[in-house]
Every structure is written in C-alpha cells, then in structure tokens.
Amino acid sequence: MSEAVAPALLAAPRAPGLNWRRAVPLLLVAPLLAFMLALYAAPVLAMLSRSLLEPAPTLAHYIELAGDEVFLKVFTNTLSTTVTVTLGTLLLGYPIALGMARARRLLPLILVIVLLPFWTSVLVRSYAWMVLLGRHGLVNEVLLALGLLDRPMRLLNTPLATQIAMVHILLPYMILPIANALRQIDPSLARAAAGLGAGPFGVFRQVTLPLSMPGVMAGVLLVFVLSLGFYITPALVGGPRDMTLSMLIAQRVEQLDWAYAATLSAVLLATALAIIALFQRVFGVGTAFRMSAR
C-alpha cells in the first residue's frame, strides 16, 4: 500500500466527512456486486422482461397464468412438496445438529457423514434412491425379511419417494447453520439454567432452542428456497403426476415459448423472494448471519 493512503486510513475515524470505516467494506464488496449485477442480475432481468414485453408490451401471459389449471396444480404441488421437505429436514436435522454441537471427538466423523452426500452429484443420489426404494430394493427387502410386509410396497415413483430423496439431498443445508448457531451458545447459560432448577428438557426449551432459532431460520430458508427449484429428483423417483414448476418451465423453453417460460420463472422467483421477505419480517433472519459473522 502506498504511503499516501496509509495515513488517510489511520486518520479516518477522526475525519467525520469521510467515513473510511464504512467505505472499506463497501469497496471490498464492490467487485462482487459489479460481477453479480453484470453477469447475473442483468441477464435475469432481461429474461424476466420477456414475460411482459413479448410479442409486444402485455400482461396477457400473467392473465393466462391465472386461468391455467395445469400451472395452478403444479404450483400447489411444488409448494406442498417444499413445505413437507423443509419440515422433514428440520425434524431430522435438528437432533443431528445438536449431536454435532455436543460431540467433541466424534465431530469430524459426523461432519464427514453429513457432508459426504453433499459432495455427491444430485443425479447419483437420485439414482441411489431408485435402487433403495424399488419394489425389490433394500427398503422393501428388509421390511419383508422382518415380516412387516407381506408383499413389496410401492415406494418408488410416488410423491413420498421424491420427498425422501429431497430431504436426504437437502439435509446438510439444514444441519450446518443450526449446528453453527448451537455451537455459539455460551455453555454457561445452560449450566445457569440448570442451576436455577430447570430440568434437561426445560433447559432445551427455554435456553437452547430459542438461542438456536437464528440457525433454524437460516436452515429453513435455505432448504425452502432450494427445494422450490427441484427438477432431476422428482423426474427420476417421483410419481407419474409429480410435476414441478421447474419442469413446466423447461417444457415451455423447449417449445420456444420463452415468454410464458419467463412468466413461470417470474412466479418462481417472486415466491422465493416473498418467502425471504416474510422470514425477514417475522423472524429477522439477518440475526442468523450476524451471529455467524461475529
């Protein structure tokens, strides 16, 4: 760094007109911001504008959308899958995150188990579920061997299969933020609560759970938004009527009906943004990121 700049930086706190403490983070973010605006925001906006501008400025595509039975069906299906998967990852992920936060020696092992599927391609994991959930797959064979079933149950090619596979694929996104939040809780708080007479459940309910909420919210948000756009997994393991919004978009792209594809994409994006805004409003998700930034 040149000598001319260094004194300016040192002097910054004293110069009220030129707030370097604020300016430096902005400068650090600027390259990324420029990159995102030029290579992400601009193309996305150009694509979305098709929904309003093709063939001429019009709202016709949105009007068509409102009366499109197939869209409404697919949209509700996508949303309900998303909600189920989010709840599923939360219920399965929280205990694991709790274990990770408490574990000392086992932590690396748990981390590897959590992250290993994370590093495997979605396609491979979806095919693995085809093998596991099949009529003659591992799950059915075990249930038959245990005498819990008389004949194989249909698991593959059902909405349930989609949900199971998606929960598996998205689990790390839930576990990691929660575990992070849990690890940042001062252990003396739990001890203090216990010292004041709270039982283990009371400590969890009144201290640990509330303090981990920022992590929970971050995880829920990540999983929710990610599951909105799923394509490969439902296509491979889902039922005959399990169409997701992204499949519908792909279909229109192939039909070269890019205006309607853009309209559907706008709905998908708006849904994700609405969810983020809602979380921000109700739970103040920012706290989750403020915590980890500390």
Partner: peptide, 20 residues
C-alpha cells in the same frame, strides 16, 4: 398402470432391470 412417464432414456431400462 403407468407408474412412470419417463423423460430420459436411462429410466425405462432401469425400471425393467429393477422389475419395477
């Protein structure tokens, strides 16, 4: 009776192989 409306060539042969 149609349990799958497939869209990639790998799927129908996989379903046959797995006796699905």
């Amino acid at each position: 009776e149609v349990v799958k409306w497939w869209e990639t060539g790998a799927v129908p042969t996989q379903l046959l192989t797995d006796r699905e």
